[in-house]
Measured scan of single mutants.
Amino acid sequence: TIEDAIKKLLKLAQKGQPYTFGDFTVTSEEEAKKLAKWLKKQL
């Protein structure tokens, strides 16, 4: 689910690992949080 993807994304971001989700490449926890907010709006 999208919720699971968001959780995984935040965990990876906390470890400092870049994470690619579709067109987004997230390289920081701050970016992960922005992406998570955006994804929730898409639901």
Rank of each mutant, 00 (worst) to 15 (best):
T1E: 03
T1V: 06
T1R: 09
T1I: 08
T1D: 10
I2C: 14
I2E: 01
I2T: 02
I2H: 02
I2W: 10
E3I: 14
E3S: 04
E3T: 10
E3Q: 13
E3L: 13
E3A: 09
E3P: 06
E3W: 15
E3G: 07
E3R: 12
E3Y: 13
D4C: 15
D4I: 07
D4Q: 13
D4H: 13
D4A: 10
D4K: 07
D4E: 12
D4M: 07
A5I: 15
A5D: 03
A5V: 15
A5W: 15
A5M: 15
A5S: 01
I6N: 00
I6A: 01
I6M: 03
I6Y: 04
I6T: 00
I6F: 04
I6K: 00
K7N: 09
K7F: 05
K7H: 09
K7D: 13
K7M: 06
K7Q: 07
K7A: 11
K8W: 14
K8I: 11
K8H: 13
K8V: 10
L9V: 03
L9M: 10
L9K: 00
L9T: 00
L9Y: 03
L10T: 01
L10Q: 04
L10F: 05
L10R: 01
L10P: 00
K11A: 14
K11Q: 14
K11N: 10
K11L: 13
K11E: 14
L12N: 05
L12E: 05
L12W: 15
A13N: 04
A13L: 13
A13K: 01
Q14C: 14
Q14A: 13
Q14E: 13
Q14W: 15
Q14R: 02
Q14G: 11
Q14P: 03
Q14M: 14
Q14T: 04
Q14Y: 08
K15P: 03
K15G: 08
K15L: 13
K15E: 11
G16T: 06
G16V: 09
G16N: 07
G16R: 05
G16Y: 11
G16A: 06
G16P: 03
Q17Y: 15
Q17N: 04
Q17V: 15
Q17L: 15
Q17D: 09
Q17I: 15
Q17E: 13
Q17R: 02
P18M: 08
P18L: 12
P18R: 05
P18I: 11
P18E: 09
P18T: 05
Y19G: 10
Y19F: 15
Y19A: 11
Y19K: 01
Y19L: 08
Y19V: 11
Y19D: 05
T20Y: 04
T20M: 08
T20R: 02
F21G: 05
F21Q: 02
F21N: 02
F21I: 07
F21E: 02
F21A: 02
F21Y: 07
G22A: 06
G22T: 04
G22L: 13
G22D: 14
G22R: 03
G22C: 15
D23M: 15
D23F: 12
D23G: 09
D23P: 13
D23I: 15
D23R: 02
D23W: 14
D23E: 09
D23T: 10
D23L: 15
D23K: 07
D23Q: 11
F24N: 01
F24H: 04
F24V: 04
F24T: 01
F24D: 04
F24E: 03
T25I: 14
T25N: 07
T25P: 02
T25M: 09
T25C: 06
T25K: 08
V26N: 06
V26F: 05
V26T: 09
V26W: 05
V26S: 03
V26E: 05
V26M: 12
T27Y: 06
T27F: 12
T27D: 09
T27P: 03
T27E: 03
T27L: 09
T27K: 04
S28Y: 03
S28M: 06
S28R: 01
S28P: 02
S28F: 11
S28C: 09
E29N: 05
E29T: 11
E29W: 12
E29Y: 15
E29P: 12
E29G: 04
E29D: 05
E29L: 14
E30P: 02
E30I: 08
E30Y: 15
E30A: 09
E30M: 10
E30F: 12
E31M: 07
E31L: 11
E31V: 14
E31P: 01
E31I: 06
E31S: 11
A32I: 04
A32G: 03
A32F: 09
A32N: 03
A32T: 03
A32M: 08
A32Q: 02
A32H: 05
K33M: 10
K33R: 12
K33H: 10
K33V: 10
K33A: 10
K33P: 01
K33Y: 10
K33G: 04
K33E: 10
K34M: 08
K34P: 00
K34D: 07
K34A: 13
K34T: 04
L35M: 02
L35F: 05
L35Y: 01
L35I: 07
L35R: 00
A36R: 04
A36Y: 13
A36Q: 03
A36E: 06
A36I: 14
K37I: 12
K37D: 14
K37V: 11
K37F: 11
K37L: 13
K37A: 13
K37Q: 10
K37T: 11
W38E: 01
W38C: 01
W38G: 01
W38F: 04
W38R: 01
L39E: 00
L39W: 04
L39A: 01
L39I: 08
L39F: 01
L39K: 00
K40R: 12
K40T: 13
K40F: 12
K40V: 12
K40W: 14
K41Y: 10
K41H: 10
K41M: 11
K41C: 10
K41L: 11
Q42N: 04
Q42F: 10
Q42C: 15
Q42A: 11
Q42V: 13
Q42I: 12
Q42D: 02
Q42R: 07
L43N: 03
L43R: 02
L43F: 08
L43M: 06
L43P: 02
